Amino acid sequence: MRLMVSGGGTGGHIYPALALIERLKQLDPTTEVLYVGTHRGLENKIVPAANISFKTIRIQGFKRSLSLDNFKTIYLFLKSVHDAKKMVRDFKPDVVLGTGGYVSGAVLYAAARLHVPTVIHEQNSVVGVTNKFLSRFVNEIAISFEAARDQFPIDKVTMTGNPRAQQVASTVSDFSWNELGLDEQKPTMLIFGGSQGAPKINASVVAAIPEFNKRDYQIVFATGQKRFEQVNQQLQQVAVEKNIVIRPYISNMPEMLPKVAVIVGRAGATSIAEITALGIPSILIPSPYVTANHQVKNAQALVDQQAAEMITEDQLNGKSLVAAADTLMQNEKLRTKMASAAKQMGMVDSADRLIELLKKAQEDNL
Score class of each variant (00 low, 15 high):
2 R>W: 03
150 D>G: 02
293 N>W: 03
196 Q>R: 07
203 A>C: 08
209 I>W: 11
90 D>H: 10
95 V>L: 08
165 A>S: 11
196 Q>S: 10
300 Q>L: 00
300 Q>K: 05
158 T>F: 00
286 P>H: 03
41 G>R: 13
134 L>F: 10
216 D>G: 14
44 N>C: 11
116 V>Y: 03
58 R>N: 14
263 I>Q: 06
117 P>I: 06
49 A>Y: 13
338 M>G: 00
82 H>R: 15
158 T>P: 00
149 R>Y: 10
190 L>V: 14
115 H>Q: 08
239 A>C: 12
304 D>H: 07
212 F>R: 04
365 N>A: 14
139 N>P: 05
64 R>M: 06
39 H>D: 13
354 L>Q: 00
48 P>C: 13
131 N>W: 11
324 A>D: 05
110 A>N: 15
228 F>W: 12
318 G>A: 02
104 S>E: 11
112 A>C: 10
337 K>P: 01
347 M>L: 12
55 K>F: 03
234 Q>C: 01
111 A>V: 12
289 Y>K: 15
72 K>W: 13
5 V>S: 06
101 G>V: 04
333 K>S: 13
271 S>D: 00
286 P>W: 00
190 L>P: 14
191 I>C: 03
24 L>M: 15
252 N>I: 05
3 L>P: 01
198 A>S: 12
343 K>M: 09
301 A>E: 07
46 I>R: 07
267 A>T: 01
101 G>C: 03
99 T>I: 08
242 K>N: 12
354 L>D: 01
15 Y>W: 09
4 M>F: 04
298 N>E: 03
156 K>P: 11
12 G>N: 10
311 I>L: 15
137 F>K: 12
103 V>P: 02
179 E>Q: 13
214 K>N: 13
101 G>Q: 05
20 L>P: 13
90 D>T: 11
301 A>M: 07
37 G>H: 05
327 T>M: 11
256 M>C: 07
240 V>Q: 15
51 N>F: 14
262 V>W: 05
89 R>A: 09
131 N>M: 08
20 L>A: 04
183 D>P: 14
337 K>R: 12
198 A>G: 00
259 K>L: 09
99 T>C: 02
231 V>N: 14
176 S>P: 05
158 T>R: 06
331 N>V: 08
25 K>L: 02
41 G>T: 09
173 S>G: 07
280 I>A: 00
63 K>E: 11
362 Q>E: 15
300 Q>T: 05
241 E>Y: 04
116 V>K: 10
301 A>K: 07
355 I>R: 01
228 F>C: 07
278 L>D: 05
280 I>R: 02
111 A>N: 14
109 Y>F: 15
24 L>D: 08
94 D>K: 08
288 P>D: 08
43 E>Q: 08
99 T>F: 04
67 S>I: 09
154 I>D: 10
56 T>Q: 15
220 V>I: 15
38 T>G: 03
224 G>L: 04
313 E>G: 06
54 F>T: 06
143 I>W: 02
11 G>Y: 02
282 S>H: 01
137 F>L: 04
358 L>Q: 04
175 F>G: 02
225 Q>M: 03
338 M>Q: 01
105 G>V: 10
14 I>V: 14
212 F>I: 14
33 V>T: 03
9 G>I: 01
360 K>R: 11
283 I>S: 03
149 R>P: 03
337 K>D: 07
305 Q>H: 15
103 V>L: 10
189 M>L: 15
135 S>V: 13
178 N>G: 15
